[in-house]
Design a binder for these strands. Sequence first.
DNA 1: GATCCCGTTCACGATACGTGAACAGTTATG
DNA 2: CATAACTGTTCACGTATCGTGAACGGGATC
Lengths: 276, 276
Amino acid sequence: MDDRPLPPAEAFDSRVARTTVTSFRMIEALEGGGYAGVSQLAADLSLSKGTVHKHLTTLRELGYVVREDGQYRLSLAFLGLGTSVRGRTELYEVSRDHLANLAEATEEVASVMVPERHWGVYLSHTRSAGVESATRREGERVPLTATAGGKVILAHLPDDERDRILDERGLPALTENTVTDRDELLAELRTARDNRFAHDRGELEPDRHCVAAPITGPDGTAVAAVTVSGPAERMTEKATRLDFPSIVGSTATAIQNRLGRERSDDGPADSGEGQL
Amino acid sequence: MDDRPLPPAEAFDSRVARTTVTSFRMIEALEGGGYAGVSQLAADLSLSKGTVHKHLTTLRELGYVVREDGQYRLSLAFLGLGTSVRGRTELYEVSRDHLANLAEATEEVASVMVPERHWGVYLSHTRSAGVESATRREGERVPLTATAGGKVILAHLPDDERDRILDERGLPALTENTVTDRDELLAELRTARDNRFAHDRGELEPDRHCVAAPITGPDGTAVAAVTVSGPAERMTEKATRLDFPSIVGSTATAIQNRLGRERSDDGPADSGEGQL
DNA sequence: GATCCCGTTCACGATACGTGAACAGTTATG
DNA sequence: CATAACTGTTCACGTATCGTGAACGGGATC
């Protein structure tokens, strides 16, 4: 057959390895669907069955995909990669105990969010006993503009970098409460910067509130955010009872101080803070 | 996903997508080293700088690699993929509270291990407050033969499948305590099967002991293992004080019973195995 | 200022990627 | 029970593209 070579060249330019892009399209399709067969994936991705088969065979041989009951799914090797990446950050280890204490003190879910690729990514969640799980998974990314943690991070970033992020990601409306007006957000960021504290009232998910304080580096820019989140009514009730800015803020600064100290392992004794 | 450095692409037959293999070789090199530059990766992997650059650019565009201070590292997107995979298993959600209780009761680290690709993979860890972290990460894989969880899983597998696993993975010696004699292991597996319980006394890591009980499916074969692990001396002391087989076993059966109950949707139940 | 090493780009040739069709199992459907 | 309608798998082929090595330009570091 003499059909033209019209394969829909993806929106990627020629600097990228297309085969790798195809593999990750399958990986992400499997992530979304949980599991799938060759034919279904081929249909979903508009690829030939032969291609899908070859890629899945490759990923299976590499250990990133497994077959189960005739269906393919991603393997836990990705969890291994993910926790390995997370383990490289000293922030994770340092924050663990502080986060547990914060969760217990507030009887909610305490989290650490870090900025990455202009998104907010949850580095870890810790929930108090008896509390329902966090609604977002560890490693999941959310818009910085729609969360307390993201706002407190944006507030402590240099203006030009903050603007670049807003330009690139915009202010997507995730709920009817999400702030979508740029000036309104900028005003909120100013007070967040002054108070080292920010709110989120159902802006990421309806009926879920969140409070956050920043962890900043030696140069004063945001490195991460410590957050506490929970159902709207429980959180508003607690806001009158607990001093969130103080509780969350002290946790954040405690982590921040330990971050500074654990550089150069066999350390000089407690020498205040370190630069860099 | 092989043990040491990934075998060269020539080791794979023509059924696989070589470009994808190359990309994952870089991903795994970055996992091992934390971060690296183009030249270093090119040298480590015996590839041209141009090739490395192209792959890293691709992975960066896809969001799986980030540049930081002129170096490349894996992004937290892998953590997102990993927790997504884990979240698909009902075992994870169901076991969370039980695991927390077990950790508190024993004041050690409680874990769930599942078999995947003939390895034991930690699905989750929960540590009691004040206890040092688990020595293995979530998502990390270990030989089934060298851990209490692995042994209790092997013990509750059909004989032929167990033999295939032993044939493929062998009995690698990780410490001087690791069981490397097949007959000795088989004898241990028989008692583990009878008692629904197994030990590990410094066989994965020196000075670290572990106990485990199996979670079995409707057909009686192992789906996962519940384990408690800690430093050798603390564990031996507790073994005289606590009834580990009873405590760990009751946690395992409690999870097992809840697993049976929440079956409603179609699709493959989490049998947790990928053959090959 | 010269040298080193870095990341990036580029043209080109050989590889192997993607396709569509054919094949073989397994499960529906009559 | 046959047959149809699915699967997943393999294969030959043409061409897109992958990997290479060399050249380019920018920072560090002597």
